[in-house]
Design a protein around this nucleic acid. Structure first.
Length: 604
RNA sequence: GGUCCCGUAGCUCAGUUGGAUAGAGCGACGGCCUUCUAAGCCGUAGGACCCAGGUUCGAAUCCUGGCGGGAUCACCA
């Protein structure tokens, strides 16, 4: 039953468009292209529900847009039962739907917990989404947070749009950067473990990475002072040579090196797991670069044998893209070790055979646009027909009000610290406002977490992924205005009304009401839109569309809440309708926020 | 320099198949708690939508050319 109703609602615009097309044929004997019939939601400042823009149609009617609108309005009102009236302003034909249309909508959806979330798969094979992709040489920072939140949310949104998804993580657990941390630990660590240091493992490794970097820079400095060029110093600093030696030993499978590598990576994984858990993200599968780089290396060697790739005199292997207007791209170093592209090639091929996916999405920062362009071209060159399925979902950098985060200057915002701070802030505010009355200590802690993380996630996700964003710590911990807690609060208030209704024995049942309040109509139109917004968000890979939708909905509901009494409405029928409307609103808030990975509390 | 992204209120951002008078939040100022949670609501002030052309009934939105900012073009990842 729901499905049938859903279909008819979803198709309201289509029905209007079709009827309009038929009328144009009858009245003016023209068959316009579908893009000439424009149906949109009527703006709130005008009376009506849907609007037909008649400027383009005037060319067929050979009358003024206004006359055309009147003519179409009359005929449409005659033909479609759902249309109760219309008005015309300039070339805009505003159609007013019957109250019953909206009342039926509410009746049918108020108890549908999955409103707006697809139940049927449109595509069987999964969309594989890679996100997070940490390096194991340092802890996660604010940039990773944005990455994780976007990736997790996009997966939710695609699921809501009827796709099957697989969330995967690719851990960059090998390479020169890890060797730097390893080397520093070997030299100066004196066997220190996370337990001894009282640090999360990822943070401990980060500490040694910083140590390496400082010592390395000092060496470079000394060498340049001794008259060497900076380039030469950077290339030949003893510490770097040692790290490179370690990488070679690692790739050769040297026991001691591999054992150290394993130990330190385990520390990192344990640390990451905690961060992911707190952040509320998860993965269906984890790929390790240490597994896939060999595959990549084999593919490169094959390509070399087939003559698709070429080798330079020093033994390094390259792909030539000069005919496509790009450069040559290194795939294997002269010492035979792998680079980033090598393993990404192997991972892509492995992943494709693992999933036979509909698409492979990579959530990776926009500084790697070129890298993914090359990856796709490389796959094509090597004969993988599915190269077009590789999609790079690039997102902008996160900057601080003072500018970019610089690890050198210690301005990198650590993910764990950040979450801690947000939750603490939520706790302070909640206690100040005296909102924990009647909660157990455990419930209160849960609430602080929900609010703090809600604030953080919303703050980041409300910005279009493509754009660079400024992370202002002051603003991010604000819990008023266009924020996550603002939306959570609206949900909690609705739930509170529901509890009061239950106490009073008020029912959400109703058959009909004499009129729909303008504040109610605004909400109804917004709720009706949810499914379309989910589709748009999916198509555009944009959690921001969902976030902004939720905000608009809540703002409109708050206006209604302020101006119109729900439980003290004139008649039980009115109460029933308003309760139903509120219930449906709460459900949409919950589902929308759920798509962003944000929980909504029952009370706050 | 080549390629890509961005440019909307003092600040942070919406505005997406081109549509009506360009909207929010923060900040500033002024109101609203004997009534469902004031983490809320209402009002005032604040705009050459970077600039110049073009496309058309109509452009913040599309096209071209500038200007400004960012990214990238490594035997880094």
């Amino acid at each position: 039953m729901h499905e049938i109703f859903n279909e008819s609602v979803r198709k309201m615009e289509q029905r209007l468009a079709q009827a309009t097309a038929e009328l144009i044929k009858e009245l003016y004997d023209e068959e316009p292209a579908t893009d000439k019939i424009i149906i949109q939601k009527t703006r709130n400042e005008f009376k009506g529900d849907f609007t037909i823009v008649t400027f383009p149609i005037a060319r067929f009617s050979k009358k003024s847009p206004e006359q055309t609108a009147n003519e179409l309005g009359e005929k449409l009102a005659e033909r479609l039962e759902a249309i109760a009236g219309f008005n015309v302003i300039k070339g805009f034909l505003n159609l007013e739907l019957s109250n019953d249309f909206w009342l039926d909508f509410v009746k049918n959806e108020r108890n549908n917990a999955d409103f707006g979330l697809a139940k049927d798969l449109e595509v069987e094979v999964p969309v594989v989404i890679e996100y997070s992709s940490p390096n194991t040489n340092k802890p996660l920072h604010l940039g990773h947070v944005r990455n994780n939140l976007i990736g997790y949310s996009i997966a939710n949104i695609l699921e809501a749009d009827g796709y099957n998804t697989a969330k995967v993580n690719l851990v960059n657990d090998r390479g020169i950067h890890i060797c730097k941390s390893m080397l520093a630990w070997q030299k100066w660590g004196e066997g220190e473990t996370p337990e001894q240091a009282g640090m999360k493992g990822d943070h401990l490794i980060g500490k040694y990475y910083v140590m390496f970097d400082m010592a390395y820079k000092q060496q470079v400095n000394e060498m340049t002072q001794q008259g060497k060029s900076e380039e030469e110093a950077k290339k030949n600093a003893p510490l770097l040579l040692e790290a490179q030696e370690l990488l070679k030993k690692w790739e050769a499978g040297d026991n001691e090196t591999v054992a150290l590598w394993r130990k330190m990576n385990d520390w990192a994984y344990k640390g990451f797991d905690k961060t992911y858990k707190r952040l509320g993200v998860d993965f269906d599968k984890i790929y390790y670069e240490s597994d896939t780089y060999l595959l990549g290396r084999n593919i490169v060697r094959e390509g070399l044998e087939k003559g698709i790739l070429f080798k330079k005199e020093d033994g390094s292997v390259w792909a030539d893209f000069s005919e496509e207007g790009l450069d040559e791209k290194l795939l294997l170093r002269s010492d035979g070790t792998s680079v980033y592209m090598t393993q990404d090639l192997g991972t892509a091929v492995l992943r494709y055979s693992d999933y036979n996916p509909h698409e492979m999405i990579y959530v990776v920062g926009n500084e790697q646009i070129y890298h993914f362009d090359v990856l796709s071209r490389l796959l094509k060159k090597l004969g993988y027909q599915w190269y077009g399925k590789v999609k790079h979902l690039s997102y902008g950098m996160v900057e601080l009000p003072e500018g970019k985060m610089k690890s050198r200057e210690g301005t990198v915002v650590d993910a764990d610290d950040l979450m801690e701070e947000m939750i603490t802030r939520a706790k302070e505010t909640t206690q100040e406002l005296g909102k924990i009355e009647g909660l157990t200590a455990e419930q209160a802690e849960k609430l602080y977490h929900t609010i703090g993380m809600g604030a953080l996630k919303y703050f980041i996700l409300k910005v279009d992924p493509q754009k660079n964003m400024t992370f202002n710590p002051e603003e991010s911990i604000d819990l008023n205005g266009n924020t996550g807690p603002f939306i959570q609060y609206a949900h909690a208030r609705i739930k509170s009304v529901m509890r009061k209704a239950k106490e009073k024995g008020a029912s959400d049942e109703f058959t009909t009401i004499p009129s729909i309040h303008p504040r109610e109509k605004v909400i109804l139109k917004r709720l009706y839109d949810f499914r379309i917004v989910v589709k748009q968000a999916s198509k555009n890979y944009s959690p921001a569309l969902i976030a902004n939708y939720a905000y608009e909905l809540v703002r409109e509901f708050n206006q209604f809440y302020q101006e119109v009494s729900i439980l003290s409405a004139e008649t039980p029928e009115q109460v029933g309708f308003r309760l139903s409307l509120s219930e449906l609103t709460a459900g949409v808030i919950r589902n929308a926020m759920g798509l962003l990975g944000i929980e909504v509390p029952e009370r706050m």
